[in-house]
Design a protein around this nucleic acid. Structure first.
Lengths: 107, 107
DNA sequence: AAACTTTATCGTAATATTGCAATATTAAGT
DNA sequence: ACTTAATATTGCAATATTACGATAAAGTTT
C-alpha cells in the first residue's frame, strides 16, 4: 500500500487534499511566505532564504508547481516563481466556506 | 531521511504545515465534510460513510485529532467526533490573510 | 567556444504514510 | 460473568516522502 485510494473519493475532495498536501510541509509554507513578501521571486533567492540544499528546494518547488499552487516563468537563465492566484483561492474559498458552516456542533 | 527538518522553520510555519498536512488526504477531507453536514458525528457513522476499512478510518481520525482539527468525546461505548473550531479557524485565517496579500505579483 | 551561473534531475538512504487483517480494549446490555 | 457492539492498536507489506551529493541541462558572459 502506501498509495492513496483517490478513486474512492470525489474530484473536489481529491483537489482539496492535493492542495492541502502541497502546503503540508514547513519548507513549502516558507516558500509561499517568501513569494508573498518578495518583490522579485527568483528561484535562487528562495534557495538562499531556505535552510535546505538546492536540490531539496527545487523538489519542493516542483511539488508546489505540480499542485498548481505556484507557476514558474523563465527569465534568462533564472526562473521566476510566483503564486498561482486562481489555485490559491480554491484553498481560501474552501476553508472560508467550511469555517462558516461551523456553527452548531454537537460536542 | 524521509524526516522533515521542523527545527529549521518557525513555529507558525510548522503549525500551518501540520494542519495542512492533516487535510492532505481525501479521506480526511471527506471526514471533515461529513462532520460538517452530520447532525450526529459518531465514529461508526463515519466508518460506514467512508469506503475504507474500519482500522484505516480510525487511523485517519487519529491523525486529524493529533493535528487538533477534530476532537472526540466518549458517549457510552461510541465516540462523538467533532471539528475543533479554534484549530480550523487557524487554517481559515491563514489562507484568508495570505490570499488578500496576493495583489501585485511579478509574473 | 570556454567558463560561469542557475536550476533540474538522478540516484540513493532513511523515514513516513497508507491500508488492512487480526486482535485488543472498553462499555453496554443480558 | 458472558456476550455483543464500538473503537483502538498492533503488525506488516507496499509505496511515498524527505533530503542531499553528484551530475546534467540551459542560458549568460567573457
Amino acid at each position: 500500500m502506501g498509495t492513496t485510494k483517490t478513486d474512492l473519493f470525489t474530484a473536489k475532495q481529491n483537489e482539496i487534499a492535493i492542495l492541502a498536501k502541497a502546503m503540508g510541509h514547513p519548507a513549502r509554507v516558507a516558500i509561499i511566505e517568501y513569494l508573498l513578501k518578495a518583490d522579485k521571486c527568483i528561484c535562487g533567492d528562495i534557495v538562499n532564504e531556505l535552510p535546505l540544499a538546492q536540490p531539496t528546494v527545487s523538489q519542493h518547488l516542483k511539488e508546489l508547481k505540480n499542485a498548481g499552487i505556484i507557476k514558474g516563468n523563465i527569465e534568462g537563465n533564472a526562473i521566476c516563481y510566483c503564486i498561482n492566484e486562481k489555485t490559491f483561492h480554491i484553498l481560501k474559498d474552501y476553508f472560508t466556506k467550511t469555517a462558516t458552516v461551523l456553527k452548531q456542533q454537537c460536542c
